[in-house]
Computed example of a mutant assay.
Amino acid sequence: MIYLSDVRAAARRSAGRIRRTPVVGAGPDQWCKLEYLQHAGSFKTRGMVNQIAAGAERSALPEAGIIAASGGNAGLAAAFAARELGVPAEVYVPLTAPAVKVAKLGKLGARVVQAGTEYAEAYEAATVRANETGALFCHAYDDPAMVAGNGTLGLELLEQLPDGFDTVLVAVGGGGLIAGVIAALPQHRIVAVEPETSRALNAALEAGEPVDVPVSGVAADSLGARRAGRIAYKMASDRNVLSVLVTDEAIVDARRRLWDDYRIVVEHGTAAAQAALLSGAYRPEPGERVVVLLCGANTNPADLA
């Protein structure tokens, strides 16, 4: 389990290394947390900075540096964090990772290896390599330090919305973000939003434990974990988190409307959280104050023109 004290420790550890991202109003009793403005384009930088810094604190950061596996965003976060902390980074991504993410990995100085057609296969190759080299393996979501670091955005929300809010909508892949938010906001309602075609946490909550699920759809590059993390499952289950599913069509529509209405460009996985509101998958009660986490924007905006 990850606790509020862990999130506060992560905030202290990462101070000066992550951005405080803005919150903007998006209608009556609704706000968007613009976390896609984070370094490297997603919330995962928070967790990676904390994970690597915590490894250095406990003398677990070898000369070989770090290795990560990712659909794209965690790899970008790992590459950025490693560069900022002065350690080598090697990132494994599936062959299906968007070209924009692969190119950016190289610009951040990471060695990029493409393996397999989905995250699970890249993960397997990365763990083998970490065992061979002795590098610190940085998990994309199922790691206590990663989760605690991600939760720091919840602490920011408390400061940025001093009059209060009731509910936070979180797009879920492996669960590293929602687990952090649960830890940071023990008094708030947290809603998990997943695509119908990539429903790892939803399936885990249904089955009573993490289980493998098929992965496909427009958001698979960022929400395409085959199995939810054990940390996320445990925390979501203990908290009775509401889990809702959205269609690919709803995700595409939400992404388009974020651009048309607010000139916000996000990736499809991020748009899933907004899709829950627009499609009616989640219907707030009258007066319920809702925050939508817009958590990543490593995408090609050409199809929004």
Rank of each mutant, 00 (worst) to 15 (best):
136 L>G: 07
96 T>K: 10
100 V>D: 12
135 A>I: 08
114 Q>C: 14
131 N>V: 06
67 I>K: 03
64 A>P: 10
88 P>N: 14
73 N>T: 06
122 A>K: 04
105 L>V: 08
94 P>K: 05
139 H>M: 07
62 P>V: 03
94 P>E: 11
129 R>H: 15
103 A>M: 08
122 A>R: 07
120 A>L: 06
131 N>S: 15
109 G>H: 14
126 A>Y: 03
80 F>A: 12
76 L>N: 00
87 V>T: 08
76 L>G: 00
76 L>A: 02
67 I>W: 07
115 A>K: 14
120 A>N: 05
85 L>V: 03
138 C>D: 02
93 V>R: 10
72 G>I: 06
137 F>M: 12
142 D>H: 07
101 K>Q: 09
81 A>F: 00
94 P>F: 04
98 P>E: 13
112 V>R: 15
134 G>F: 08
99 A>C: 03
129 R>Q: 13
120 A>M: 06
76 L>D: 00
96 T>S: 15
123 Y>G: 04
86 G>Q: 10
126 A>G: 06
106 G>A: 08
101 K>E: 09
62 P>W: 01
145 A>D: 15
145 A>M: 10
144 P>D: 15
75 G>E: 03
82 A>Y: 00
128 V>D: 12
112 V>C: 10
122 A>D: 07
99 A>H: 10
81 A>P: 00
64 A>M: 04
87 V>W: 12
84 E>Q: 15
103 A>D: 13
126 A>S: 08
74 A>Q: 15
61 L>E: 01
71 G>R: 00
107 K>T: 08
82 A>G: 05
142 D>W: 03
146 M>A: 04
78 A>Y: 00
73 N>L: 11
81 A>L: 01
119 Y>K: 02
104 K>N: 14
107 K>Y: 02
137 F>P: 07
130 A>M: 00
121 E>P: 02
127 T>P: 02
144 P>T: 12
119 Y>W: 11
71 G>K: 01
89 A>V: 05
68 A>F: 05
129 R>F: 11
72 G>S: 06
69 A>V: 06
128 V>Y: 13
102 V>H: 11
65 G>A: 02
99 A>S: 12
109 G>S: 05
86 G>M: 10
62 P>Y: 00
80 F>K: 02
144 P>E: 15
111 R>P: 04
67 I>F: 03
116 G>L: 03
134 G>D: 14
62 P>F: 01
82 A>R: 01
68 A>I: 04
110 A>D: 01
121 E>T: 05
79 A>V: 06
88 P>A: 02
96 T>W: 11
68 A>R: 10
128 V>L: 15
120 A>Y: 08
135 A>E: 01
132 E>Y: 11
108 L>W: 09
142 D>T: 13
104 K>D: 06
61 L>Q: 01
117 T>K: 12
104 K>S: 11
138 C>M: 13
136 L>F: 09
73 N>H: 07
131 N>F: 06
133 T>V: 03
139 H>F: 13
84 E>I: 04
63 E>G: 04
79 A>I: 09
140 A>E: 02
66 I>P: 04
145 A>S: 12
93 V>W: 06
139 H>T: 12
134 G>T: 13
94 P>W: 04
125 A>E: 11
137 F>L: 14
132 E>Q: 15
93 V>G: 07
64 A>S: 13
85 L>Y: 02
127 T>Q: 13
96 T>A: 12
120 A>W: 10
129 R>I: 05
97 A>E: 03
94 P>M: 09
107 K>R: 15
72 G>T: 13
140 A>S: 13
139 H>N: 12
